[in-house]
Simulated assay, not measured.
Amino acid sequence: MTGLLPTTPPVLTARELSLFQALVEREVGIHLSPAKDALVANRLARRLRELGLTSFGAYYAYVTEKGHEAEKVRMIDSLCTHETSFFREPQHFELLRERVFPEWMAQANAGRRSKHLRVWSAACSTGEEPYSIAMSLLDAFPPGSGWSLEVLATDLSTWALERTQEGLWSLERAATIPQPLLRAFMLKGVRTQEGLMKAGPELRSIMRFGRVNLNAPGEWPAGPFDLIFCRNVLIYFGAEARGRVIRGMLQRLPPTGYFFLGHAESLIGVDVDVRSVSANVYTPRTGGMSRF
């Protein structure tokens, strides 16, 4: 015997798929439909090869065995979708610039709110969303204006969070960043860094990072937040988990706060008391938290 692993990739059976579906939904709230069988097989096949396992059933037994939590995190990482871009869904950033920020400035000038802003990008992927928010905030509330800013970027994926903290992207990703913001807040790579761009020091100064499982609200960061972006992630959640996440996030907003969903998402079927501000943007009628 040579001891070599078979070259033919293993087949993901219907029973094995159902085991992974239940595990992923239980752990992180993401619902993998039966149509995702090829995606699951392709993304997990590499883990099988690296661990020397010959079936998906053996891999399931491995990740559910006590002491293999790190591999379970890697498995979930591999099944997460990380599609994103700077200033994705630009109408949301237009709303911030033209309505939300002037509203907050007027409230602060009238003594009805503090000049401290906290934002949560709750599924930040590789960082394009939270850095877009940070650029928008710094443009409207620059250093020296008397406002303090904090953008919390969280994700389930450890790999994505590492990319976010690094704040380094291909220069091609700059295409959707407005030129004034690109020049003000991003650094262009030269010599060994040519073809790359990096978040500048002003952006980095207001960023915070953390791994957060949206299916475990008890582990979420404490509010209140002035903005919560939870875009293009809840479409992967089952109905029960989706409702739980939305209700928990709205409880972390004051009445002056705003909640942003992605273009393919809505609050249909979720019993919450909110006011629709714009497409997929809501504010609580009575916030779960308020400021001193």
Results as ranks from 00 to 15, higher is better:
Met1Lys: 10
Pro10Ile: 08
Leu17Glu: 04
Leu19Met: 10
Leu23Ala: 08
Glu25Val: 12
Ser33Val: 11
Pro34His: 01
Ala35Phe: 08
Lys36Pro: 10
Lys36Gly: 06
Ala38Pro: 03
Val40Lys: 01
Asn42Leu: 10
Ala45Val: 10
Arg49Trp: 08
Gly52Asp: 01
Ala58Pro: 02
Val63Gln: 04
His68Phe: 08
Ala70Arg: 14
Met75Ser: 02
Ile76Met: 08
Thr81Asp: 08
Phe86Gln: 08
His92Ile: 04
Phe93Trp: 04
Pro102Cys: 03
Gly111Leu: 10
Gly111His: 11
Ser114Cys: 11
Val119Phe: 01
Ser121Pro: 02
Ser125His: 08
Tyr131Ile: 07
Ile133Ser: 00
Leu137Pro: 00
Ala140Val: 11
Pro142Phe: 12
Gly144Ile: 06
Leu149Gly: 00
Leu152Phe: 00
Asp155Cys: 06
Trp159Glu: 15
Trp159Met: 14
Thr164Ser: 14
Gln165Thr: 09
Glu166Pro: 04
Glu166Thr: 13
Leu171Pro: 05
Ala174Pro: 01
Ile177Gln: 06
Gln179Phe: 13
Leu182Asn: 04
Lys188Ser: 12
Gly189Gln: 09
Thr192Ile: 13
Met197Lys: 03
Ala199His: 07
Pro201Thr: 14
Glu202Gly: 02
Arg204Gly: 09
Gly210Met: 10
Gly210Asp: 06
Val212Thr: 13
Leu214Asp: 01
Leu214Tyr: 07
Trp220Tyr: 15
Pro221Asn: 08
Ile228Glu: 03
Gly238Glu: 03
Ala239Cys: 02
Glu240Pro: 00
Ala241Thr: 10
Ala241Asp: 10
Arg244Trp: 05
Arg247Cys: 08
Leu250Glu: 05
Leu253Glu: 01
Leu253Lys: 09
Pro254Gly: 09
Gly262Met: 12
Glu265Gly: 09
Leu267Phe: 12
Val270Cys: 11
Val270Gly: 07
Asp273Trp: 03
Asn280Glu: 14
Tyr282Glu: 02
Arg285Leu: 12
Thr286Lys: 15
Arg291Val: 07
Phe292Trp: 14
